[in-house]
Design a protein around this nucleic acid. Structure first.
Length: 855
RNA sequence: GGCGAAGUGGCGGAACUGGCAGACGCGCCGGACUCAAAAUCCGGUUCCCUUCACGGGAGUGAGGGUUCGAAUCCCUCCUUCGCUACCA
């Protein structure tokens, strides 16, 4: 503020410096025209191949990756933001001396291609590759520093053939298996979904309700890695806590006891998992999920058989979402009984709607006194209650209970375990169960195996063959790839054409040679995206999935950037797949992404952009209007990366104005400082020039720290704006012009500003760099360094408070000691007004910043 | 219901480990340039009181606390937004 005042008076003193006519003419001729500048530099970058990289053991590597796009047709603002953040970082790191890998490609298999192909009477491949062509052009217009030589599309056989090979290796290691089971089925998409792909009972892609279906499918044994996936979350300090929490919850580890309840009148036991073994003496009945295999079996032949059948049918008819919404506890008695393994109590076995087959064992021991759901169920059906846990206030009495007592406490009515705490009892009871062979302490995970079969066409074929005699036979490695037949005609009704494509399906059994049939399911497209990042290290390698040399040089990804929506989908699958590749000896690292940045959405008028709301902003149009550099600058300036960003045209215009200002001021300085070297010490600087020199170095420091620390491009840009504003003032300051080092200090400042903005607005930066008399590209220039000595001003502003309230500010020499500060504060007339007649109890001095007089 | 994040001007957002709240930008207001407009440049812009001016008071969702000093730390509450949800 103080500085400002000084500037104002200076400017006034210069009696409005004005340019001559000639200068105005030339300024017009040299107007900032983003379209020209951007086309020029994009062509030069391409010609020089500046973004091509290869392994270089002499330099530290930095692998910067943004989530690759699905080629849906056009780039949207969300992509633009994602890639602006990544490109800003990649260019910054490159200038800092890292060997930066920054690739781009296409997540090219998927359902929209099939839908679009039907709608437009074309082929998914055609549609996909056309989209890729178009979107690549869009990306190139934005000037991202991708090594385009590494580009690939996952629908290319040269990519998915290696995925098929990995599948076969996984098959050998029993990391894939095929089973018949109840699966999530989306009727709209006509395919199966993995658990992760069902969100609140709805399909993650189309939003339609998901039903249940009994189907054969292939499964990846992700559960085998549950513990490792969980443990490694603690070893990923570069991941947002939010994402790690979501993955932890998804894996859902819980400690408890497996308990066996012997059936009455027949062989066998019902196994349950419980986290509350301490309440076992209170278990008075048993609840089975309607899908539990024993449910019908037990009812068979009893008078309950019909009722059980009807109930199971009723529940089966409910959709996934309806069932989750159903709050009322309902069930029927199966007519069968089991026994409590410790008390021997006869327990009726019910089928209950709230018991889920896909968690635990699908059976729950019911303790109505200490579990709210069991309590409600028991009240509904008049089942007995036994209180076995008491809190500090002692027993409640079952007749007084209006809800279950779910806290931990002390055991009663539990025989030898009476008086134990819940925690003690859980271990003791589990030990007792184990001794009797009726259970044990155990750990349970919520995570299910990853079902990867999709009943779709546009995906990687699963390399398996069904033979009537030999059963399921893997395709021999030498027969890979199993190429997806492109001659298929998509049935207009939806669904996959593969089962009807006889010439493709018919194959000789590799084992017995007799006629057999190919697997017609394709792989979940999340399989492709689970390893593409590693393939970028060696995209053209044709001897295997991954070339060991380059892969071990580049992997893992140092910085991964993308949306939060993949927190438990892509990001969990990729972690799993990386561990599988590691165990197959194909990769050396344990985790794919060392650091993860989850960027916020781009919104408009407070809402997510969508066609229905009519608030979609087209990147091409914005580039046309403001230029790629302005779009990039605004994208990074308007909000910190993790937060949602509100797109406004005025904001983009503001970014454009800033670049224009930078342009004008740089050309002016280029003129003044032609042949002048940047200031490098020497002449003593005074006043405005000293301030600009200091500001230059402070800005270099701040921009570097803001980008590398927290990806705070917004504050980094703000700092460069401040610097440019100051350059503009000094450039016009008549008094400063008199100083012999004027042009040199200006050059130093402008060159710093241009370099600092270059990762963000690379085209204009390169153009100005050239016009400042340099050759080459800024990306090949070292990141500027700052001079510690230049950061400190000769004088500092010291705030004086009285009783914590600001009363004055003093301009004092920077090297003034505490005592000098104290004296200056006490002597200030503005301060004395407030301390007159008061006793000063204490004086707080913060070195070089503040004096607080306590009265 | 559970877990998590966030509440700061008209708006987007700054404020590193407690030390000048509102950087930077948008918008708005005023001025310069112009026949005029656009563009550009300069100045102002948290609110309230007072003033020709100087000045003063309040203020970071609400209330309390710790401290010389709190947007920042602690407690209680409110609101919004995410994710998750009968998890045995």
């Amino acid at each position: 503020m103080l500085l400002r005042c000084r500037w104002r008076s200076l400017i006034r003193a210069t009696d409005s410096f004005s340019r001559g006519k000639r200068e105005i003419m030339s300024a017009q001729a040299d107007r900032y025209r983003p379209a020209e500048v951007e086309a020029k530099w994009q062509a030069r970058w391409q010609q020089a191949g500046v973004f091509k990289v290869s392994e270089d053991p002499s330099r530290p590597k930095f692998y910067c990756l943004e989530m690759f796009p699905y080629p849906s047709g056009r780039i949207h603002m969300g992509h633009v933001r994602n890639y602006c953040i990544g490109d800003g970082l990649a260019r910054f790191k490159r200038m800092q001396g890292y060997n930066v890998l920054h690739p781009m490609g296409w997540d090219a298999f998927g359902m929209p291609a099939e839908n679009a192909a039907i709608a437009n009477n074309t082929h998914p491949a055609r549609w996909t590759y056309d989209n890729i062509e178009f979107m690549r052009k869009q990306l190139k217009r934005l000037g991202y520093s991708y090594d385009w030589d590494r580009e690939f599309a996952t629908c290319d056989p040269s990519y998915y053939r290696w995925e098929q090979l990995v599948f076969l290796k996984m098959w050998e290691k029993d990391l894939v298996y095929r089973k018949l089971s109840l699966v999530n089925w989306c009727e709209h998409c006509r395919t199966v979904l993995a658990n992760e792909q069902v969100e609140q009972g709805l399909c993650w892609r189309c939003g339609e309700p998901v039903g249940q279906k009994r189907l054969w499918g292939y499964y990846f044994r992700i559960t085998r890695y549950a513990e490792e996936l969980l443990e490694w979350l603690d070893k990923l300090p570069g991941w947002p806590e939010r994402v790690k929490t979501m993955q932890r919850n998804w894996i859902g580890k819980s400690h408890g006891a497996e308990t066996h309840f012997p059936l009455e009148g027949r062989e066998g036991v019902i196994k349950v998992f419980t986290t509350r073994a301490d309440t076992l003496y209170g278990a008075t009945f048993m609840s089975l999920a309607p899908e539990h295999p024993l449910a019908l079996e037990l009812a068979e032949g009893t008078e309950q058989e019909q009722a059980v059948k009807e109930f199971i049918d009723k529940v089966a008819r409910q959709s996934y979402a309806d069932r989750a919404d159903e709050r009322k506890k309902e069930g029927v008695f199966t007519g069968a009984w089991c026994r409590n393994p410790l008390t021997g109590r006869r327990m009726p076995i019910y089928v209950a709607n709230f018991v889920l087959m896909d968690y635990g064992t699908g059976a729950v021991m019911a303790v109505p006194t200490h579990d709210q759901r069991d309590f409600e169920f028991a009240k509904e059906y008049g089942l007995p209650l036994v209180e076995v846990i008491v809190g500090p206030d002692g027993p409640i009495g079952v007749e007084n209970m209006t809800q279950a007592f779910t806290d931990y406490g002390t055991l009663i009515n539990s025989g030898p375990f009476d008086g134990m705490s819940s925690q003690e009892a859980m271990r003791a009871i589990a030990a007792e169960l184990e001794r009797r062979g009726l259970g044990r302490e155990t750990v349970h995970y919520r995570l299910r195996d990853w079902g990867i079969s999709r009943q779709r066409y546009w995906g990687a074929p699963i390399p398996m063959i069904h033979c009537e005699d030999c059963g399921l036979v893997p395709v021999p490695e030498e027969d890979l790839p199993v190429v997806l037949p492109l001659e298929a005609q998509l049935p207009p009704t939806g669904g996959s054409p593969l089962p009807d494509l006889e010439e493709w399906v018919r194959v000789d059994c590799p084992r017995c040679g007799r006629p057999a049939r190919r697997e017609v399911d394709t792989m979940d497209t999340f399989v492709e995206s689970s390893w593409y990042f590693a393939r970028y290290a060696c995209p053209h390698y044709d001897q295997g999935p991954l070339d060991p040399g380059p892969t071990s040089y580049w992997m893992p990804v140092d910085q991964y950037i993308g949306g939060i929506e993949h927190a438990v989908l892509h990001l969990l699958y990729s972690r799993f797949y990386t561990k599988v590749l590691r165990d197959l000896g194909l990769i050396h690292c344990d985790e794919p992404f060392t650091n993860l940045l989850t960027q916020g959405m781009v919104i408009k008028d407070g809402a997510k952009m969508s066609k229905s709301k009519g608030n979609v902003v087209d990147p091409d149009e914005m580039v046309e209007r403001y230029g790629a550099d302005a779009v990039r600058t605004f994208m990074l300036f308007a909000a910190p990366p993790e937060r949602d960003l509100d797109w406004t045209d005025q904001g983009a215009e503001g970014a454009y104005r800033f670049l224009q200002r930078l342009w004008r001021v740089s050309l002016a300085v280029a003129e003044h400082a032609r042949g002048v070297e940047p200031y490098a010490g020497g002449e003593k600087l005074t006043g405005a020039l000293a301030d600009l020199h200091t500001k230059t170095h402070q800005t270099i420091k701040k921009v570097g720290e803001d980008i590398s620390g927290r990806f705070q491009f917004n504050t980094a840009i703000a700092a460069v704006m401040e610097l440019v504003n100051l350059i503009s003032l000094v450039e016009q300051d008549a008094q400063a012009r008199q100083h012999p080092a004027w042009a040199a200090v200006l050059r130093e400042a402008v060159e710093a500003a241009v370099k600092l903005i270059s990762p963000i607005a690379p085209h204009i930066a390169d153009e100005l760099w050239e016009r400042l008399g340099h050759q080459g590209f800024l990306i090949d220039q070292p990141w500027p360094s700052y001079d510690e000595k230049a950061l400190v001003k000769a004088e500092k502003v010291v705030v004086v408070q009285v009783g914590g309230k600001k009363r004055a500010q003093l301009l004092l020499p920077a090297d003034a000691d505490d005592e000098a500060l104290r004296q200056a504060a006490l002597a200030d007339p503005g301060v004395q007004k407030f301390i007159a007649g008061k006793e000063i109890k204490k004086i707080i001095v913060v070195q070089g910043k503040l004096v607080n007089l306590v009265v």
